[in-house]
Design a protein around this nucleic acid. Structure first.
Length: 772
DNA sequence: GAGCACTGC
């Protein structure tokens, strides 16, 4: 255990390419990835045909979203396999004790008992077991009891504490961890203990299982942010554990800001009971978090309120090999490197290559496949599998399965999805092109760009680590050691890459008057915040003095982006009266990438156009969404078949129905919707053209600034900024000339594209802009 | 004529 003071951990910088700072030590990446303690790997190794292994995988949320749905997860708990009844608990405990974090149990408990150290930072590498164990170490501590007390200046009794909240960036992590921890702690989810109370719960969108008396509650970051609206001092919690903070999601950045404010405010509003904060990171670069929270101490006490604990992980060593000189053609170098590894490295050992996008993956796959046919018969075969987000579930699944053919090496060509979101088993060789596509918002242009950029050092290390999960491995970087050195330490956090419109509304709705003074680890440009304030004012969320309006409060309670919230609020007005239609469309828009699957081949394209024809509307994408969800819900024979025929993403349209149900519920509660809509299935009746017009005019109340007019030369020029914008090929209006268009997304890739496009009239824009 | 990855009481 290493308890470092701020000074010691600070100022340590990486010295050589493969070194990393761990507390006061600077060690090489090889050592960093090497097993630090004697491990009993053999005991925890998966047996033949068993994919999941022991505690390491279970503690790790970087897991296949396909493989780890909770039920499967539970069934595959190794401790329960071939294990006589009654010894389950002991085996679970034995496995827990093997985790690196176990030996630091009492130290963690001690660190949190004192009242001075209110913030603990735990650096635990992948496989340290921090996510599953830390809450279990703490929930029996006396400070974790629920207490009856009085809020400051009030005689009313309040209850404070009793629960440890653990946030996760992803739903699947929150739910699977809850299942795992509830098992380990002896009160499986859905069962109650001897005292008739539950122990572990989780709360994510559309899915809440928090038993009465739950001491441990896993939630997504967004869910906790929503809870802050009702419970600004987080009184139900004794402690908040922020897990995976190194991912720096926008929500987590806002969360730590609110946590810092709660700490700064003292304990009066919590009846004298402090809120303990545990920050957990998988990367050692935690100085920013430390100084962020230590700043808070200046107003509370003079002592350091932050302790840092380092816990080693469980990784096999990975040898990192750089290029001697820069490569001219990355794509070519990548293919050659994969083939070289295949020729020179022994089996077993699959190859995972990181590329920037689908296009590059497909091109590389073609080249490798071509080459594979020329392999000598005594050479192992190659099976190339693509892996990217938009790939069908079946396609993704294939990349996770071991190849069935004998004497064959699997080569997975993946986007960044394989860096954190999923784990490909069997990988011992990683090829890293050094780039990734990154989305960045440009406040001045009001548009996003999606371009391939160099990755960060921490990303490169993460990619390399993918080779050392099951055995010692190798990582081939297609760039020089000097180029690695020149990379930035970590990726730009989301709050500096995204539109902060939603973040500003979140702050305003939770009582922050001066958003520029809100404590943030990284503060966006003043200009970006000002743009957001102006836009929120236009949307009616803020009044002329910058205070939140009741409409703004409603918008913050709606789980949709602010402009779409404004659309919903406009939809209830008598001149539009189209809340049901707006909800249908918004559900489709917010249900994921797109409900429409894209098809590669040209012949598939023609077939697709025919089958989708009855869904498409000349008014554009929004009314097409409306038609699609209505036809889908009207379909009561075989929805699955219907989706297959129309090439509709089943997962996303199901998600759209979930969102639709949720939005209808919230709109009823908020009185945006007066009467509950008729239950499905309803017969399909096409939206009349005049109704479609009303719906589009209503959407303009949120998107008047995202419009363009047709110029004499046939191009579209945006009303704001006068930029040329092209209708994206995925839009039903692609290639068409309309007087004016409204678009919900504006992304620069190869050029400036308008997405989710509708045909409108120029006069409507003026109408929408005159409103305020 | 084109799609990094997540996510929301």
């Amino acid at each position: 255990m290493h308890l470092s003071s701020s000074k010691k951990a600070a100022n340590q910088r990486k010295k050589a390419s493969n070194t990393i700072t761990l507390g006061s030590k600077v060690i090489s990446l090889d050592a960093y990835l090497a097993p630090p303690v004697k491990r009993e790997r053999s005991a925890a190794r998966p047996q033949d045909g068993q994919q999941l292994e022991g505690p390491r995988n279970l503690a790790d949320k970087n897991i296949s979203k396909v493989k780890l749905i909770p039920e499967q997860f539970d069934q595959s708990l190794p401790a329960e396999k071939g294990c006589p009844k009654g010894t389950e608990d002991t085996t679970l405990l034995q496995n827990r004790k093997k985790l690196p974090i176990w030996q630091y149990r009492s130290e963690i408990q001690r660190a949190l008992r004192g009242s001075e150290n209110q913030v603990i930072i735990i650096v635990g590498e992948t496989g340290s077991g921090k996510s599953t164990q830390v809450p279990q170490f703490l929930y029996k501590e006396s400070w974790c009891n629920r207490r009856k007390t009085h809020a400051h200046g009030s005689r009313d009794e309040i209850f404070v504490g009793g629960t440890i909240g653990i946030t996760q960036p992803r739903r699947v992590a929150a739910t699977t961890l809850a299942y795992r921890v509830s098992h380990e702690a002896g009160t499986p989810l859905g069962k109650v203990g001897p005292d008739g109370r539950g122990l572990v719960g989780y709360s994510v969108r559309f899915d809440h299982r928090v038993p009465k008396g739950a001491k441990i509650k896993f939630l997504t970051e967004g869910t906790l942010l929503q809870e802050l609206l009702r419970d600004p001092y987080l009184r139900q919690y004794s402690a908040i554990v922020i897990d995976e903070i190194h991912e720096r999601s926008l929500d987590v950045d806002l969360l730590v800001g609110f946590l810092k404010q709660i700490i700064n405010a003292g304990t009066e509003m919590r009846g004298g009971i402090p809120l303990r904060v545990i920050i957990m990171s998988a990367t050692a670069n935690v100085e920013i978090f430390k100084s962020f929270f230590n700043d808070a101490s200046s107003t509370v006490s003079k002592t350091d309120i932050v302790q840092v604990l380092h816990i080693e992980g469980r990784q096999f060593p990975v040898e990192v090999i750089h290029e001697a000189r820069p490569v001219a053609d990355i794509q070519d170098a990548l293919v050659k490197k994969i083939l070289k590894i295949h020729m020179e490295e022994p089996l077993p050992g699959d190859i995972l290559a990181f590329l920037t996008g689908q296009e590059e993956i497909e091109a590389a796959q073609k080249l490798i496949d071509e080459y594979a046919t020329t392999l000598a018969s005594n050479m192992p075969r190659i099976k190339v599998l693509p892996l990217y987000g938009q790939l069908s579930l079946d396609g993704q699944q294939e990349a996770f399965q071991p190849v069935s053919a004998r004497f064959t090496r699997k080569v997975v060509l993946a986007t960044n999805i394989a860096e954190t979101s999923v784990t490909v088993p069997g990988v011992r060789y990683v090829v890293d092109c050094g780039k990734a596509k990154i989305k960045q918002y440009r406040p001045r242009l009001g548009m996003e760009s999606l371009l391939a950029k160099p990755i960060s050092k921490s990303s490169a290390i993460q990619r390399a680590g993918r080779a050392g999960r099951e055995a010692p491995g190798k990582c081939f970087r297609l760039y020089t050691e000097a180029a690695f050195e020149a990379l930035s330490e970590s990726d730009l956090p989301e709050i500096l890459r995204n539109d902060v419109l939603g973040a500003v509304l979140t702050m305003k709705a939770r009582g922050i008057r001066d958003v520029l003074a809100f404590p943030l680890i990284d503060t966006p440009d003043t200009e970006a915040i000002e743009q957001a304030l102006i836009q929120l004012h236009y949307l009616g969320a803020l009044d002329d003095d910058g205070y939140i309006t009741s409409a703004g409060e409603k918008m913050a309670r709606l789980p949709v982006p602010a402009p779409l919230g404004a659309v919903l609020l406009a939809a209830e007005k008598p001149d539009f009266d189209c809340v049901i239609e707006a909800i249908d469309i918004i559900s489709c828009i917010t249900s994921g990438e797109d409900i429409f699957l894209q098809v590669q081949s040209e012949e598939g394209q023609e077939e697709l156009e025919l089958s989708r024809k009855e869904l498409q509307r000349r008014e554009g994408d929004l009314i097409t969404y409306s038609t699609t969800i209505q036809q889908y819900t009207a379909e009561n024979s075989d929805r699955m078949q219907w989706c297959k025929r129309k090439k509709i993403n089943i997962r996303n349209i199901k998600q759209a129905l979930n969102i639709r149900r949720q939005l209808r519920g919230i709109c009823l509660k908020e009185k945006i919707l007066r009467n509950a809509p008729e239950a499905d299935p309803q017969p399909f009746t096409p939206l009349a053209p005049e109704r479609a017009e009303t719906v589009l005019r209503c959407f303009l109340r949120g998107y008047a600034y995202k419009t363009a007019m047709l110029a004499p030369d046939g191009s579209y020029v945006t009303v704001h900024g006068k930029h040329v914008v092209a209708i994206h090929p995925a839009s039903v209006l692609h290639g068409q000339k309309k007087e004016a268009i409204m678009f919900l997304d504006h992304v620069f890739t190869n050029k400036s594209y308008a997405k989710k496009v509708s045909a409108i009239q120029a006069a409507w824009i003026a109408e929408a802009l005159e409103i305020r």
